[in-house]
Write a protein that binds this DNA or RNA. Structure first.
Ligand SMILES: [Zn+2]
Ligand SMILES: [Zn+2]
Ligand SMILES: [Zn+2]
Ligand SMILES: [Zn+2]
Lengths: 142, 142
DNA sequence: TCTTGAACCTCTACCCGCTGTAGGTCCTAT
DNA sequence: ATAGGACCTACAGCGGGTAGAGGTTCAAGA
């Protein structure tokens, strides 16, 4: 049996975050000590490690929830798990593409400015007028 | 004089977002009609366009705030504006690096799975055990 | 056995950058 | 005059946590 602090140290997760995961139903409710403190089994430690590692690989919490559910049914085919991972891969690739387009525009505006007065600053000119850009932009926050 | 709806259409910004920008002090408080509705000058339209374009290029709102302040002082040198843009460029480059590392791991786990049962799923194996990874990961959410 | 103090508890609020909804008011065209 | 779109305020919620207040429990040392 482990305390929440032990889980925290062993997985590099803040104590509050573990409680948050419990609150949203991602971690199961653990048993409690006579004084009301959480006591975890090894299985909980594994589950938290899984969650954290999935987060480090960028999976959103609801995808992790699905993966955990799948992980509990060992005899089923793994097509669903693979599909989630491929979806995540596509998301990452999409974000890379978007950021590369941004980088291009930013690089260009920074490189083009000769560092004169604000009135002729290339950076501010481009920000004021999108027609100075080479590419279209994605929706904000997409 | 323009209504908020006109600003919204002309800049592709939701009406609520414009009001939000006002609330956080990014847009100036406009004059009001006798009935209390917002009425904007052309300068406000320009300012909103600037904000939106900067957002499309990924600048956070506080950087945009600085850029707007700088933009109001045309005779000063533009070093500060350029520095903000270079900082943004570095952020974007950093994010690209991180995502490329993620992509590599995700690609590998997806490619390695032969689609058998969950018990032998390569995707789930990797998620359970970071030592199956080739690279270290950044802090979550960084 | 008592005392200390680190670790735990609940609850609430906050971060970014918006978005959505409820319930009401204004403006303008017919 | 009336309809109905556009506007108003105020508040809640998203994801994925993080911080703090104010109180309790636990375990080790004296
Ligand atoms: Zn410049
Ligand atoms: Zn542009
Ligand atoms: Zn698989
Ligand atoms: Zn890993």
């Amino acid at each position: 049996m482990h305390t929440i602090g032990t889980l925290s140290k062993r997985t590099g997760t803040k104590v509050q975050t573990i409680r948050y995961y419990e609150q949203i139903g991602l971690m199961r409710e653990p048993v409690r000590s006579s004084g009301g403190q959480r006591r975890y089994h090894d299985a909980d430690l594994d589950r938290l490690a899984f969650i954290r590692h999935s987060r480090q690989l960028g999976f959103p919490l609801d995808a992790i929830r699905e993966l955990l559910d799948l992980s509990d049914a060992p005899s089923r085919p793994c097509a669903d798990a693979d599909a989630i991972a491929r979806r995540q891969l596509r998301q990452v690739e999409l974000r890379i593409e978007r950021l590369r387009a941004l980088r291009k525009e930013l690089k260009r505006m920074v490189d083009d400015c000769d560092g004169d007065s604000v009135a002729e600053c290339r950076v501010l000119e481009v920000l004021r007028d999108h027609s100075e850009c080479l590419t279209q932009h994605e929706e904000i926050g997409a």
